[in-house]
């Protein structure tokens, strides 16, 4: 394994071990997701709306709000006790640092998104049948794009004096493609449509994720420099 990948891996491992020990972010995101599911259950009138028509939208919105809660705090802990300076001063390239942070956040958010899928499936009585695998894949692709974009802007908003309140203003307009393709695809899959019908959308979601990761890897160094 070459040095670059090993550097990425070390930081990913460090973040995940830290998360496994403190369980700070995963606990808040998981609790948020389940409780949002409970509230959503009361916010829709099941006599006029079929749950499987709105479930996809609710799943994605829960992911976005929950993800903002957790991923938005990526640099918070480290910025507080000055550990971020230490990581930045180490010889690790900044793009490796970004990729590592994105990967660690991705693992975190993906776990939460699978939890959301399970809980909402239970709450709204969804029967995914053979499409379960595809929904799991689509959630993964969408979560990757989301995490890359939010990790970059989390670094930006941590550096401002508005902090996390600035994050939604910056990322919500940029997340529109993810919401449209993600919800559109997931709704169709939940309603039992074949995967062929949504393949183009999944590709667009993938292109969005790749562009977000690439842009973040290039631009991250300018956000954290000095």
């Amino acid at each position: 394994m070459n040095t670059y990948l090993r550097q990425v891996w070390v930081i990913v491992w460090k973040d995940l071990v830290l998360e496994m020990r403190s369980r700070e972010r995963i606990a808040s995101m998981g609790a948020f997701a389940v409780l949002a599911g409970v509230l959503f259950n009361f916010s829709i009138d099941t006599t006029s709306t079929r749950p499987q028509d709105v479930a996809a939208g609710l799943i994605w919105m829960t992911l976005i709000f929950g993800g903002l809660l957790g991923v938005g705090r990526t640099f918070h802990l480290e910025a507080q006790d000055g550990a971020l300076q230490g990581v930045l001063m180490s010889p690790t390239p900044k793009d490796a640092l970004f990729l590592a942070k994105t990967a660690a956040n991705f693992v975190l958010l993906y776990v939460v998104s699978l939890l959301v899928l399970g809980v909402f499936g239970l709450f709204f009585g969804l029967d995914l049948g053979p499409n379960l695998g595809w929904v799991v894949l689509v959630l993964g692709v969408g979560a990757l794009g989301f995490v890359a974009l939010v990790t970059l802007f989390a670094a930006v908003s941590t550096g401002t004096n508005m902090g996390e309140t600035l994050l939604p203003v910056l990322v919500f307009p940029l997340l529109v493609p993810m919401v449209i393709y993600g919800v559109g695809t997931t709704t169709r899959l939940i309603n039992g449509r074949p995967f062929d019908e949504v393949e183009g959308n999944v590709r667009m979601l993938g292109a969005f994720a790749l562009a977000a990761v690439a842009a973040g890897a290039v631009l991250f160094r300018y956000v954290v420099e000095d």
Binding site: L149, L152, F153, V156, L170, P173, L174, V176, P177, M204, A207, F208, A211, A215, L219, Y222, V223
Partner: peptide, 13 residues
């Protein structure tokens, strides 16, 4: 960074 990412995202949006 905001301007650049915004411009990249516009075709996707």
């Amino acid at each position: 960074v905001v301007a650049i990412v915004g411009a990249i995202d516009i075709p996707f949006i």
